[in-house]
């Protein structure tokens, strides 16, 4: 059994708007699963279907072994949720909201609550309306993490946090992972996803475009190289691991499979490199490929490094 098993999920809003188009998503027990995709791809809709707030039009959705639409209340005792846009009651204090949400979920651990308030440096006596966006998010995070549950659904939980709090968040999630909890983490912060997630699913236009471990995904990503040499570069096209090569005399642009990079460098040294720009296989590149509307390769200058030869 999986923590989350979604297959062929379809969700329409009216006759012309298909928010989810046969989405597949699997989250194993004990894993932190990254859920990525451009704005409007359907991440929040998916999570709301998982919470039983929206009804699936087609497909199979199993959450913690149950049907989230029919067994919402029983399942919600076993999960905690942090929404992307934290809408709370402006005239209650942070402390009151944490207690309330914890209690509605079936109770929270008071010691853990105090510890998290300390770690997130949140003042629980202020009214929700006087909190900044980041502090409202902390309220939701403390409320969720104070609960002893099996599954955490986090919808862009750190979009308003400062780097220090981001680090605290990552620590807490690491602790939960070590403790064997399952987490679905929707996020745009790639360093966070890279640091925390065992596997990721990238969603685009309501479908899962890619799913797997980072190793799985990374092997799909090639390093882009722009190079100028003293000797002509005609031989580039013949090297193994080189793709999409465009050669103009002593100038060439191509991409290289991650495993072939070393061999390619050896070849290039023979041709006497004058300048060379490489775009390493960043996650960002991978995501850009999926986020871009046309699905084309990202621009090569992103995250580029310039190495100038003497």
């Amino acid at each position: 059994m999986r923590a989350i098993a979604v297959s062929g999920l379809v969700k329409d809003f009216g006759p012309r708007t298909r928010a989810l188009d046969h989405l597949d998503l699997d989250v194993e027990f004990g894993e932190v699963h990254g859920f990525l995709g451009p704005n409007g791809a359907g991440k929040t809709t998916t999570i709301r279907v998982l919470l039983g707030l929206l009804r699936a039009d087609a497909g199979r959705v199993v959450l913690l072994g149950g049907d989230p639409w029919r067994n919402a209340v029983a399942l919600h005792r076993r999960l905690a949720y942090v929404p992307g846009e934290v809408n709370l009651w402006p005239n209650l204090t942070g402390g009151e909201v944490i207690d309330l949400l914890g209690d509605l979920r079936g109770g929270l651990d008071p010691r853990r609550r105090e510890e998290l308030l300390e770690r997130f440096q949140l003042d629980p006596t202020k009214k929700i309306r006087s909190y900044s966006k980041g502090n409202r998010q902390k309220v939701a995070l403390v409320a969720a993490f104070s609960s002893d549950v099996e599954l955490y659904l986090l919808d862009e939980p750190t979009s308003g946090l400062d780097p220090l709090m981001e680090a605290v968040f990552q620590d807490v999630v690491q602790d939960l992972r070590a403790d064997g909890r399952s987490i679905l983490l929707s996020s745009h912060i790639l360093s966070e996803v890279e640091a925390l997630c065992d596997r990721v699913t990238i969603i685009r236009a309501g479908r899962a475009a890619e799913s797997g471990t980072f190793e799985d995904l990374r092997h799909l990503t090639r390093t882009s190289v722009v190079v100028d040499t003293v000797k002509p570069l005609q031989s580039v096209t013949g090297w193994s691991g080189v793709h999409d090569a465009r050669v103009h005399g002593e100038h060439a642009e191509f991409s290289v499979d991650p495993g072939a990079l070393n061999d390619v460098l050896e070849h290039l040294v023979d041709l006497q490199v004058r300048t060379m720009t490489t775009s390493p296989p960043t996650l960002e590149e991978l995501f850009m490929r999926h986020y871009g509307d046309d699905g084309s390769e990202p621009a090569n200058d992103r995250g580029a490094e310039v190495v100038a030869a003497r």
Binding site: W89, L92, E96, D99, L104
Partner: peptide, 22 residues
């Protein structure tokens, strides 16, 4: 803006209690 309670009173801890409070 005044500060408020750091902990919810037991009376708040139910949907009916929340609505009452609001």
């Amino acid at each position: 803006e005044r500060r408020g309670a750091a902990h919810a009173s037991p009376a708040l801890l139910s949907p009916a209690g929340l609505v009452w409070r609001l």
